[in-house]
Computed example of a mutant assay.
Amino acid sequence: MKQPIEELPPKLQEIIKLFQAVQESKAKYEQLLFYGRNLKPLETQYKTIENKVQGCVSQVWVRAYLDSDKNVIFEADSDSVLTKGLAALLVQGLSGRPVEEILRVSPDFAVLLGLQQSLTPSRNNGFLNMLKLMQKKALQLYVESEKGGNSINDLAEDNQVGNSDLRLKNDGGIGKSNVKESPSALESSVGNGSELGNRGTRIKERLEKELRPIELEVEDISYQHAGHAGVKGSNGETHFNVKVVSEEFEGKSLVKRHRFIYSLLQDELQNGLHALSIVAKTPSEVDPQ
């Protein structure tokens, strides 16, 4: 079931309605090029590996930061006018919105734009990868803001949903979880074909103890971030994907599930863990196969 357009950020709704009003594919394509030509260039200093979108035909970079109200501001650039147009749609549609709202956006909204016939499969895939990176950066901004602000424990006890709240629906940024329901056994996996190191083992044991998950996956993806500035003592274990299916999440919003996991792993976040990508579901939410 596709996400209703009414649940999308207001500016993104406006962009979708504008493209839906244009019937001809060629006209949609020209509209896209117009967006690309009017996208503000990204300063060279921000065209880094960490800001680069992977899996795109062209080179694309995305920068994100929080404004004074803790809303996310995006900037982007590409060496292709067409790809710049796709980036501009997301920059205009998502900038200035709370982290929670950005992470609520489902990738299937792209269907509403009606651009499939105007784009190659690789371009469509690159567009979704841009959204993934933007949502991932929103998550990272949340983590960094919590390191320098209120403790995660304080946030976990807060009953109000504010601009710094977040929800992550995917592995690495967006989409549906690959976790399959298996109530009879606990499933754990590690990334890159190797055993978990000390930090990964601690994360796994902590989550098993506190959440009693039906399914659990802890994947160390630090090897994908070679050259990323590490923290002394982190032993290179800086980036993880975590997928949890637990009855402990029943009755909790996705925001509070993430807050809970961050509270459990606060020590790791303060001592070298740079990024944590989370899928948190209840058994009833796992897609039947």
Rank of each mutant, 00 (worst) to 15 (best):
S95K: 05
S95D: 03
G96R: 15
G96E: 12
G96M: 12
R97H: 12
P98D: 11
V99Q: 10
L103V: 05
R104L: 15
R104H: 15
R104W: 13
V105D: 02
V105N: 06
S106R: 11
S106A: 10
P107A: 01
P107H: 06
D108K: 01
F109N: 03
V111W: 09
L113R: 06
L113T: 07
L115N: 12
L115P: 10
Q116S: 04
Q116W: 00
Q117A: 01
S118L: 07
L119Y: 03
T120W: 01
T120I: 05
P121G: 05
S122P: 05
R123Y: 02
N124F: 01
N125T: 03
F127E: 03
N129D: 07
N129F: 13
N129T: 13
M130A: 05
M130K: 02
L131N: 01
L131P: 00
K132I: 12
K132D: 11
L133Q: 04
M134S: 00
M134E: 00
L139P: 08
L139N: 13
Q140G: 11
V143M: 13
E144Q: 15
E144S: 12
S145W: 14
S145D: 14
E146W: 08
K147E: 10
N150F: 13
N150C: 15
S151E: 03
S151A: 03
I152C: 11
N153P: 01
N153R: 07
D154S: 14
D154R: 14
L155C: 06
L155A: 11
A156V: 13
D158L: 11
D158V: 06
